[in-house]
Design a protein around this nucleic acid. Structure first.
Lengths: 344, 344
DNA sequence: GTTGACAGTGCAACCGGTTGCACCTATAAT
DNA sequence: ATTATAGGTGCAACCGGTTGCACTGTCAAC
């Protein structure tokens, strides 16, 4: 690969002139510019991005660590949609993405730290939904711009940038939808209990129930770890509660809702006649289940996009933008919810 | 961020010694090593990956350009699964991925070239299924290792590395499955006709039909461009063929198959009693459709993984590995296929 | 008591760009 | 005619690592 000095030699100019032609940041006479362009073309020259990065301390790259990938991680729309939004926005802003895999939570954080410290990216999108106060502190000390996708661990960390959906509102909408249909025994099937989102939603669930004067049976709360079998086993655990068995399930993602549907079908319980189910995320397959899932659309693509925009603003130090964002969710009513069965 | 010289000063050694401690490629006495480690720890030093890359001409990064993203691109399992395999294998081999977006085919190629020429990656996974002979020639001239996911444009380019599924076999399995059920009027709904995979499958479809002595009605061939509405409109176009209307559809991905199901349902045609449908890719949602889709499992994750392994081998110049790979596909019979209706 | 081998470290050039500063020249202002 | 101004280019240091080569010291072999 030709270097800037090769081009300079050929065009009879100084290397710095070549640099200026290609970075476009200085006045160069039209004739010189043309001469340099021609020489570069002949040599097939293109600036080396690595060398440029070293010198400018800018990579035009956004870092991202893919959280632990469980079975079905790419089936639910959560990750793919965030990814899509990030990719879109990065492309719009002339950034590329540098991706690292990870194994488990600890590794995830250390990969993030590694990317930051080794200067491989100008900023990072942190997807982990489990970041605690210490981690945030650690990330801040590295002073590489970052933005959290998901809720920050505590309210008083007001100086960190994050994007999240309004999980509480979403959950309340779902639960109220079920209550409006006459359901009073509503189960909550959350994701990973270590996850902030899961807890936030659990809290919203409990509050909504209490505000309506409904009891919350401790056995109505279970964690399905975001995968299909998780939803399935949650039903297994709740099916023997007799008169206390839930008449409706709220699941924190659609995969678990699919597992719930499968378990109910095996028990010969009809949805929505006998039991109602609400999923979350409006994954593509949620239209295809039998019956189609009532679910909550969460604007993950927009969140990913917004995250990148906030990150780019930080990197360019145009940090005029708001420090945090909430995006609305939307209940999508389909066939998996219906009026509660009347007590015989 | 501390540099190698800061650490050297603190540890009273030469910068090169620090470098050697961190790259681990030279004999350093235990005492010196420890002294350097301590100094580095105190300063919070970590080697700058960019500087290292510039000097070693190695980035430990694999490039990848995301093809044009259409609606549903992340819903079908094709891309997410390849992505997953790539990510996994890269992680195993201590590589990261650098991702670029793109707009349309031309841009896709130019992004690939850009990543290669600007030395941002040690090698590239080329996903585009439309690469022609010229493009391959162009890529080869850049002499950055690359591997094609998908079929190479012509057979005689035997020196390029690629991974592909055995599309012909897969298609034949699907079509023969339908023929075994008594179907004779079988439609082929392909993806993008510019795509090599699409043509390869079309060819297999035609051959299989001909080998069975069945006619191929030109109107039974349509292109749905891999999205759901594409499948839907394909049915619209074929429904008025009267006695020649297909009794079975083979679709080149599950999204189009979903569109076919939707169109058939609107026409009050029952699946599989009236019409059978076979999809491709075994996307998650294909289990959930009504009826569940008979489909072909294509091992995309394995292909992505294999692609990275071949790439890494090239980069490390251990190119002992085979120059191309075919992975088997597998027919998964579910409820969307059944015996052809007997003529009244 | 040499000689040789080898472990351990320093030196300096190099990877391929960028950029502040100095310098030159042509034109405009006075 | 002189000075101020600005456009255009060269110079050289710098970004932060790596590595071939030279040098020193130690120990074993002869």
């Amino acid at each position: 690969m030709a270097t800037i000095r090769d081009v300079a030699r050929k065009a009879h100019v100084h290397p710095s002139t070549v640099s200026r032609v290609f970075s476009g940041k200085a006045a160069i006479s039209e004739t010189t510019r043309q001469r340099v362009r021609d020489a570069a073309k002949e040599l097939g020259f293109q600036p080396n991005a690595i060398a440029r990065s070293l010198s400018t301390q800018r990579t035009n790259t956004i870092g991202m660590v893919v959280p632990h990938v469980f079975d079905g991680f790419f089936d639910d729309s959560f990750f793919p949609q965030i990814m899509r939004g990030i990719l879109d926005a990065a492309y719009q802003n002339q950034f590329r993405i540098i991706l690292s895999g990870s194994q488990g939570y600890q590794d995830e954080i250390s990969q993030i730290v590694d990317i930051m410290q080794s200067s491989q990216a100008d900023g990072i999108v942190v997807m982990s939904s489990r970041v605690d106060v210490d981690t945030v502190k650690q990330l801040k000390e590295l002073d590489t711009p970052f933005v959290l996708v998901g809720h920050p661990p505590t309210e008083n960390l007001s100086d960190i940038v994050w994007v999240d959906a309004d999980n509480k509102l979403a959950t309340r909408q779902a639960v109220e939808h079920l209550m409006n249909l006459g359901h009073t025994r509503i189960a909550y099937v959350g994701g990973d209990p270590e996850t902030l989102t899961t807890n936030e939603r659990l809290q919203a669930y409990q509050e909504t129930m209490q505000n309506a004067g409904l009891p919350v049976h401790p056995q109505w709360v279970d964690y399905g770890y975001f995968d299909e079998p998780g939803g399935y086993t949650a039903v297994q655990r709740m099916k023997d509660l007799g008169a206390d068995a839930p008449s409706a399930y709220y699941a924190a993602n659609d995969l678990m809702a699919a597992g719930i549907l499968r378990a109910l079908a095996e028990l010969n319980l009809h949805v929505p006649q006998d039991v109602s189910v609400v999923g979350t995320n409006n994954s593509y397959f949620s239209q295809q289940t039998s019956p189609p899932l009532t679910t909550i659309h969460v604007p993950y693509a927009e969140m990913g996009k917004r995250a990148v925009e906030l990150l780019v603003a930080q990197i360019s130090e145009e940090s005029l933008s708001p420090i945090s964002v909430m995006e609305d969710c939307q209940l999508i009513v389909r066939g998996s919810t219906g009026p509660a069965a009347q007590p015989a």
